[in-house]
């Protein structure tokens, strides 16, 4: 692609920058669909590979990952692929008999069974017919929830559960969707940023940004579900920081940068330092500047 095409609207931000030169090591391990993967005799085939005749070929574009005998190719950008134990943010799409269908940015909608949620009051009992009729009072269509992946069925169906006080309906915040591959799987999904804003980084690329007035100190994971519901008003300042965080995540997504609390705060602080008002944060020239500065402050 020529440099003179920089002004074309079809060039995405990070391409304009023509970032770092890719390392030679990585480029030798790059494969596109149909490319051969060099392998020894006995390998265990992982995701992204297939056997065609005697050849082992890749089915996606990515880097070949080898772990002992396992050979796999992970796509750089794809729809969310669930694993058991992932914490995700989802949107209720539909309510059918005794279950909710949840959109989780994956190939199929996930399923949240009625028996997999905590009833109000925390009481453990069999779900009755009345519970079924009251499902809509619990989670209605278009509600956002946080949940955990309980199980994966044979055909790829994702079963969710919210059997913990930290999961449940999400309120008083902003939702943003990013590329799932940018959210690394880690132990903590619920974070409290140094600017006072809380975020939930779903492994599926759905992020929830919210304020939490109740003072809980360091240990956010034990926050009580029901108390969160009482916060109806946030003041203007809080809202502005929410939006700033949201825009920072947006910039990270545009430039295909890893999304972690540290990187979010890096962008956040940069915009504060430059006194960029929230509404201008996503202007093309400004995000370019921010990115360049951030790039140079990396610690690697």
């Amino acid at each position: 692609m020529d440099k003179d095409d920089d002004t074309s609207i079809f060039v995405s931000p990070f391409e304009q920058e023509a970032v770092v030169t890719p390392s030679i090591v990585k480029s030798s391990q790059f494969v596109a669909p149909g490319d051969d993967i060099l392998s020894q005799e006995s390998v265990v085939r992982g995701h992204g590979t297939m056997v065609q005749g005697t050849r082992l070929t890749s089915t996606v574009a990515g880097i070949v990952e080898r772990v002992n005998k396992l050979v796999a190719v992970l796509p750089i950008r794809a729809r969310y692929s669930a694993e058991v134990g992932d914490v995700i943010v989802g949107r209720i799409r539909d309510i059918v008999s005794r279950r909710w269908k949840v959109d989780v940015n994956s190939r199929q909608d996930a399923v949240l069974l009625l028996s997999a949620v905590n009833l109000p009051g925390g009481v453990q009992r069999r779900r009755t017919y009345e519970d079924e009729l009251k499902m809509r009072e619990f989670f209605d269509q278009d509600d956002l929830i946080s949940a955990e992946v309980q199980e994966l069925k044979q055909d790829g169906l994702i079963m969710l559960h919210t059997r913990s006080l930290k999961y449940g309906k999400l309120e008083n915040g902003i939702f943003i969707s990013v590329t799932p591959q940018l959210v690394k799987r880690s132990k903590k999904h619920f974070h409290r940023l140094s600017c006072g804003v809380h975020i939930i980084l779903g492994d599926n690329g759905y992020v929830w940004i919210y304020v939490d007035d109740a003072a809980y100190g360091e240990d956010e994971e034990e926050a009580n579900f029901s108390k969160r519901r009482e916060n109806d008003k946030s003041n203007l300042e809080q809202r502005l920081s929410l939006i700033r965080v949201r825009n920072s995540i947006c910039i990270l997504d545009l430039y295909f940068l890893s999304i972690q609390p540290e990187t979010i705060m890096l962008i956040y602080e940069e915009t504060i330092r430059r006194n960029i008002p929230v509404q201008h944060m996503l202007r093309p020239d400004i995000i370019n500047d921010i990115y360049r500065t951030v790039k140079n402050t990396k610690e690697m």
Binding site: V19, P22, S27, A32, Q260, T263
Partner: peptide
């Protein structure tokens, strides 16, 4: 086509890994 795909993908990967381990010791 292959070289375009390669170039785009490598750019993406480099970008993502760029500050991936930034402060990950937290």
């Amino acid at each position: 086509m292959h070289s375009s795909i390669e170039r785009y993908s490598l750019n993406l990967i480099a970008s993502r890994d760029h500050i991936a381990t930034f402060g990950s010791r937290a």
